[in-house]
C-alpha cells in the first residue's frame, strides 16, 4: 500500500510538472494546484504511515496511543492552506493579466525583462 501511494504521489507530481511546462497560464496554474496536492501526499507518505488511527488522545488518557503521525499532518494542514492561497493569488494575477494584455501565453509576460521598453528605461537618460 505504501508503495502504491508513493507511486500515486509521484504520478500526480509528474502530471503536474507536465502541465506547468505548458505556456497557457491557466494550465500552469492548475498544474501548480495539482503539484501542491501531489507534494502533500508525498509528505503524508513520508510521515509515520504505520497506523490508521487519527492522532487524537482518547478521553481519560494523558498521552497519544498508537496513531498516525501528527507532525506530518500539522505540516500538511498549513501546506494545503498556503497552496490554496498561492493558487488563488496566481488566479488573480492571471485574470488581471488577461484583462490588461488579452493574452494567456506565458511568453507575453516578459515586459519586466525588456530593458528597451521606453517605460522602464531610466527617466533622466540623455
Amino acid at each position: 500500500m505504501t508503495i502504491l501511494y508513493a507511486f500515486c504521489a509521484a504520478a500526480i507530481m509528474g502530471a503536474a510538472l507536465y502541465m506547468i511546462l505548458s505556456r497557457n497560464l491557466v494550465r500552469i496554474l492548475l498544474g501548480l494546484a495539482l503539484l501542491s496536492t501531489g507534494v502533500n501526499v508525498m509528505l503524508f507518505v513520508a510521515g509515520d504511515f504505520g497506523s490508521r488511527q487519527p492522532p487524537l488522545i482518547r478521553a481519560g488518557e494523558k498521552a497519544l496511543g498508537e496513531a498516525a503521525d501528527p507532525l506530518a499532518q500539522a505540516l500538511i494542514l498549513t501546506a494545503i492552506v498556503i497552496g490554496f492561497a498561492l493558487t488563488v493569488v496566481l488566479a488573480t494575477i492571471v485574470v488581471t493579466g488577461w484583462r490588461s494584455s488579452g493574452s494567456l501565453d506565458a511568453r507575453d509576460l516578459d515586459a519586466a525583462e525588456q530593458p528597451d521598453d521606453p517605460e522602464i528605461r531610466e527617466p533622466h537618460a540623455d
Partner: peptide, 12 residues
C-alpha cells in the same frame, strides 16, 4: 516522477 518515486520509496 521516477526520481520522486525512488526518493519516496527510500524515505519510507
Amino acid at each position: 516522477a521516477a526520481v520522486m518515486f525512488v526518493a519516496m520509496v527510500d524515505m519510507t
